[in-house]
Each structure stands twice: as C-alpha cells, then as structure tokens.
Design a protein around this nucleic acid. Structure first.
Lengths: 229, 229
DNA sequence: CGCGAGATTGATCGCCCTCAAGGTAAGTGG
DNA sequence: CCACTTACCTTGAGGGCGATCAATCTCGCG
C-alpha cells in the first residue's frame, strides 16, 4: 500500500498537470485515490456512464473507444503509461464520452473528481495549467479530425510514424505502441489495410519492418512520398 | 461607434462564457476590442498564424477550415451568430489550428488575448467557466471524430439533421445553416453525395426538402432508418 | 509437435469521389 | 416580358480506395 502510493506519487509528479503541485496537496489527493488492476480487455468505464473519477495509467495501456450504433468501433486514443485521461470531464460533471478498456494487463490510479475539484477551486494557478492542458487536447483532436477527413491511409500512417520519430532529420528506429490491429484502429483503418500500406512503404525502400519495430532511414523522404499519395 | 459597442455588449452578455462577467470588466474588454467587417470568402486568419485575438460573430457566419497538403479542405465547424471561436488558443499562446473564412458578409468582434488573459488571471471563477467551455468543445470534437470515422454518409447526415431538431419526438421543420455545399463540407462529404443522400431520404418518405428548408415528419423514424445503413 | 493469436496476402465488393452534363431559380439589361 | 447570365443544385456514368471475406503464413508456447 505504501509502495503503491510512493510509485503513484512519483508518476503523478512526472505528469505535466501535477508537476507543480505542492507535496501536501498531492498526498491529500493520493490518500483518496486507489489503484485499480485490470486484465486484458477489461472495461474501466463505458460511454455515457456518470463520471466520478479520472485516471492515471500506472502500467499497461488503455484504449479510448468510440462505438457507433452499428457496432463498429474506433480507437480515439491509446493512453500510455504515465498519461492522464478523462480529466476533462471534471468540469462538466457529466458522463464519459468514450469507453475505456485495458489493452493487456493494466493498472490505473483512480482519482476522485470531487476532491480534485475542491483543491482546484482554491488554487487558480493550477486551473491555468488545466486550461493549457485542455487546449492542447483540443488542438490534438482538431488535427485528428483533419487526418481522418482529408488524408489517405498512406498519409495517416506516415504522419503517425513521423510523430513517433524523435527527430525528423535523422534516421530513426521506432516501436509501435501496441499490436498492429490496435494501431490500425487508432488510425481508422483495418489491420489488412495497415499491413498493405506498410508493405508498400517497405517496397518503396522507405521503412523496414520487424515485428513492432520500424526503422525509418529517411523520415523526410517518407513525408515527401506520402505527400504524393 | 457607441452603437457598435452597445450591440456587441448585449451579444457578449448572451454568450455563456461572458454571461456572469461584471459590467465593468466587460466594458474594459470592449474598449480594447474592435469590430471587423468581412466580405464573402474573406480570410479572418489562417492556420498556423500567431494568435493575438479571439472572436465573436456579430452577424453572418464563419467557417473554420482545415486543409491538407493536397489542397483538400474540410469545414471543421460552422460558427453562427453570437458564437465565440478561437478562444481556446488563449491558453497556449500559440497559433491558430485552423483557417477562418467568412461565409457571406460577416462582422466579428475581435477581442485581444492579452487583456482577456490578464482579466482571467484575477478572476478564478471565470477560469472555471472557461474550463467547462473547453470541456464541452472536447466532447463535441470527440463526437465528431466518431461521426467521421465509423459512420456512413446516411448516418452522418441523419445525426446532423437530428441535432438541428428542437425536439426529437415531434415533427420538425428545420433550416440548413448554410448553402448545401458548405453543409456537405461540414459533414465531410461532397455536394453531390449530400444531394444524393437527401434524395434517398426523400424517396424513403423521411424528409421533405425545399431549398434550405427541410421538414422531418418523424425524427425517430429517421434515426432508425439511418441505423440500418 | 500442434495449437492459437496475430499478421499477411489475395479476390471481390460497396461506398463515395470525380468528372461531366443538365436543371432550377434569382438577378440583369434590353 | 423575355433572352441572358450566374450561382447553386441535381443527376448520371465511371473509377478508386479501403472494407470484407477467406486462405495462408509466422511465431511463440504448452
């Protein structure tokens, strides 16, 4: 229990949102939070459920999924270790807009909204940070909208790979953050299409694929290639 | 000039963001703001430009447009009269994520970011409202992502029409907020496809179309029909 | 080895875009 | 009042991208 708290504390401190919080407040928050362990595919919360808490990924991965009436699903975002999610619902006091499911064994820290809001109310500068954070998410989603609506499969995958590159000028070797089927869903594609596009890029000499490891000798060439379809 | 300020003041007060602002602060903001008149197609700001202000639509309409490298365009949102836009950039101090263009003759109120931030800094409860507002936009965009990625043209148009209905149980007569080509772009479709889908709905007896006026005898039937492709 | 999950590859199909040709309606000038 | 113009919408034919369905392949593992 103590070990868990310590682990969570250090992880919390690493997030941009909490990095500037005073120790005392962070501890208060932690005593009210609890660790949740999930198996592969377990549902943390479902779309439209009343939101009582938000979450920090301690280990594993969480998929945020939007489902249509027809049963089709789209992974809106893949939440990695040490990322916060669902924190935006706090200010609406409403319900979750997506479903959250574990991708493999995963542990998350569940932080109650009520206490969080109470603390925030007394610390305006923390609010300012929340605002910046939400703005960043807004920009991210706007960018996603563009990707989905006006870019081809090649362009979407290329953008995605380029985002994973630390620097765009040098050769890079990157690791896909999840199994390919999940990456495909994240990009709004089927696994088959993802496979074919990767294959096309490989044949064009732009990337090399080995399991989840992808090496990109010339990221800029990849970007140019995607530009011309 | 005085008339302009009065008009803008009353409009500002009607927006959820400013409705709770004290008169004095609102006037301070107004004296620093200025009215901008735009002709059809005029660009208010372009994507990636440094953001110095955000805007309130006083009359007409503004299209927020995301463009791809290939030149294709998608209307992310259609901003109606009395709606704020671009206010989210304030907290990043960065650049606009989309391009804003006037749809027909339009006037907007240009509100400088610097002053706005300064006021906000001193009024925590106003920040709280900003947070709620940004959360709402986040939810809106998440919903949009779902629409674009997992729904068909029929479903997207049906959802769009249903959102324009005041109540979903009763017959409704609604007015498209812009010319059909713009609505199509807003839905991620071409004008041709929009026309065809409208035609299909008409032949199914679900709607009647007269210029921009659309009557929906049974919104629920429309929703059911869209569910089954 | 055999099993099963994930990845690949091929064949086919459907939705939506593109290109092209009317069609409708409102506004001009004679 | 009527040709003419212009903007917008509609309708049709054809094609491409990515989904679907199905078969095969790879690899880790009991």
């Amino acid at each position: 229990m103590e070990a868990i708290a310590d682990n969570a504390s250090s992880l919390l401190r690493e997030t941009s949102l909490f990095s500037a919080w005073p120790e005392a407040l962070l501890n208060t928050l932690l005593t009210q939070s609890k660790k949740v362990t999930l198996g592969s595919g377990d549902i943390l919360f479902v779309e439209k459920a009343t939101a009582n808490a938000f979450y920090l990924v301690l280990s594993g991965r969480i998929h945020l999924i939007a489902a249509a009436a027809t049963g089709q699903e789209k992974i809106v975002e893949i939440i990695q270790i040490n990322d916060l999610f669902a924190e935006a619902v706090a200010f609406l006091g409403g319900c979750y807009p997506v479903t959250a499911a574990a991708d493999g064994p995963t542990t998350v820290l569940e932080i109650p909204l009520a206490l969080f809001l109470e603390i925030l109310e007394q610390k305006p500068q923390l609010m300012r940070q929340m605002l910046a954070r939400l703005s960043m998410r807004l920009h991210f989603l706007v960018k996603e909208l563009r990707h989905l609506s006006v870019e081809s499969a090649e362009q979407r995958l290329a953008s995605y790979l380029l985002e994973l590159c630390p620097v765009v000028n040098n050769p890079a070797v990157i690791e896909l953050p999840a199994k390919k089927a999940a990456v495909a869903a994240r990009l709004g594609l089927t696994p088959e299409t993802l496979s074919r596009v990767l294959s096309r890029m490989r044949k064009a000499g732009l990337i090399e694929v080995e399991q989840r490891t992808i090496s990109i000798p010339d990221p800029l060439a990849l970007r140019r290639w995607a530009g011309g379809h």
